[in-house]
Simulated scan of single mutants.
Amino acid sequence: MPAPEGFDYDVRGAEVVITHHGRRATVLRGAAAARFLDDVEQGDAQELMARVTGNYRRGNERTAKNHPRNTGR
């Protein structure tokens, strides 16, 4: 599974705006923003932003696409 890429974040006062390929993905405020900033300093920022936004692959996309329930979509 490839590593996530294309994420960026910007701190605006008490908010953290996370973008993915230039489009706003989510805005964190308050305690969530503070936790995020602490975690970014300690680990992989791309992986963390992918997890926070829910925009990451789980490895089962192709299987789900071919499932009979999803045919014709």
Results as ranks from 00 to 15, higher is better:
1 M>L: 14
3 A>T: 08
3 A>Q: 13
3 A>F: 04
5 E>T: 09
7 F>S: 02
7 F>N: 01
7 F>D: 00
7 F>H: 05
8 D>P: 01
11 V>D: 07
14 A>L: 11
16 V>S: 00
16 V>M: 00
17 V>A: 08
17 V>T: 07
20 H>Q: 10
21 H>W: 12
22 G>M: 01
22 G>E: 12
22 G>A: 03
23 R>L: 13
24 R>C: 09
28 L>D: 02
28 L>N: 02
30 G>A: 04
31 A>S: 10
32 A>M: 08
34 A>E: 15
34 A>Y: 05
34 A>T: 13
35 R>I: 03
35 R>V: 04
37 L>G: 04
37 L>E: 03
38 D>Y: 07
38 D>L: 13
44 D>T: 07
45 A>H: 10
46 Q>G: 01
46 Q>M: 11
47 E>F: 02
48 L>M: 05
49 M>P: 03
49 M>W: 04
52 V>R: 05
52 V>K: 02
54 G>S: 06
54 G>W: 06
54 G>I: 09
55 N>T: 10
57 R>D: 12
57 R>E: 11
57 R>A: 11
59 G>L: 06
62 R>S: 14
62 R>W: 12
63 T>H: 13
64 A>I: 14
64 A>D: 11
65 K>S: 13
65 K>A: 14
66 N>F: 14
67 H>R: 10
70 N>Y: 13
70 N>A: 08
72 G>D: 05
73 R>M: 12
